[in-house]
């Protein structure tokens, strides 16, 4: 059973940026692309317990702030070592100016 969870206002995230969203003991990273599309992944890097919301968003890639590992935040695919394991991703929809994540 999945639910659409209200994560934030669409305007809470700058273009080409990321914010942290915590829910029910879990943590996520919510992204807004240059094209104004929204995406959501697990919050922590798969290499170590470092939150990606402090990282750099650039060209559909999130770079981990600790070791510069990179993921494609649209698919969760690991792009650059030291990350080898893909990130979990979650469906996102925007309604009424709010960003909802399917969990």
């Amino acid at each position: 059973m999945t639910d659409w969870i209200d994560a934030c206002a669409a305007d809470d995230i700058d273009e080409e940026d990321v914010i942290r969203f915590d829910h029910d003991g879990r943590t996520f990273a919510v992204y807004r692309s240059m094209e104004n599309d929204y995406f959501c992944t697990d919050g922590f890097c798969t290499h170590e317990q470092v939150h990606l919301a402090d990282g750099l968003v650039m060209d559909h890639v999130i770079e981990c702030p600790k070791h510069n590992g990179q993921f494609d935040y649209r698919t969760g695919a690991a792009k650059r070592s030291p990350v080898c394991e893909n990130l979990g991703t979650y469906r996102v929809k925007v309604e009424g100016g709010r960003v909802f994540i399917e969990l």
Binding site: H47, E48, K66, H67, S81, P82
Partner: peptide, 13 residues
Amino acid sequence: PVTWRWSHARHHT
């Protein structure tokens, strides 16, 4: 270049 990328990641951790 492979070994030392991991070594340096550990140095930063």
